Simulated assay, not measured.
Amino acid sequence: MKLQKKIESWCKDENFMHYVQERVRKEMCESTESHRIDPEYEKLDEGFEYEDRYIVPLVTYLTYKLRLAVVQRSARKRKRGIWWVLVHVEMQGHYVKVFAADFEPLLAELREAFLPMLHTEYIQTLNEKSE
């Protein structure tokens, strides 16, 4: 609950939200270079293109990848893993809204992993500017 309240207060900061949008845009533009698709994800994604029943295994796999990233000891690997999941969720586009019930738990976990990471980056950039 504490983290959710912090996230709510961060989201009220327009400068932070602008930073988040720019950072996500930048990562999406560089996604082809830094976010390779693994074979298991590719199978699930292709299956989903033909049958909606693949949405549950696809979301389960993304949730697994997020949880795996969050427990990484290396900060670099943890960040890369969280970005990987975020980019692949963004690539699902409108399907996230169409299958909102399936994506909702993943999006909540992703938000709790992603926003604190970006808030730390944001604070570091503010500190660098003030020096």
Rank of each mutant, 00 (worst) to 15 (best):
V59T: 11
A101S: 14
W10N: 05
K97T: 07
R76K: 14
S9P: 00
G93T: 01
H88L: 00
S34H: 05
L66K: 02
L118W: 13
L110M: 05
K43S: 07
T120Y: 15
H88K: 01
P39Y: 07
L86I: 05
R73C: 00
T63V: 05
S130H: 03
E30Q: 10
I82P: 00
L86M: 12
R67K: 12
R73T: 07
R80K: 13
R73S: 07
H35T: 09
V89H: 04
P57E: 06
K77E: 10
Q124T: 09
M91K: 14
E22I: 13
L66H: 05
D52N: 13
A101T: 14
S74G: 06
M117N: 02
V59R: 00
V59N: 06
A69Q: 00
N15H: 13
G47C: 01
F16P: 00
D52I: 10
E46Q: 09
M1Y: 15
F99A: 00
R73M: 04
M117E: 04
R80P: 12
Y54G: 13
E40Y: 08
M17H: 13
H119R: 11
W10M: 08
L44H: 03
K79Q: 14
T125D: 08
E8G: 09
D45C: 08
E112H: 15
R73W: 06
F99S: 03
Y41N: 07
L110D: 03
I7V: 09
F103G: 01
E121K: 01
E22T: 11
F48Y: 07
R78V: 10
V98L: 10
E27V: 15
E22K: 07
D38E: 08
Y19A: 05
P39N: 13
S34R: 04
K97R: 08
Y61W: 09
Y50C: 02
E22G: 15
V98T: 09
S130R: 10
E40D: 06
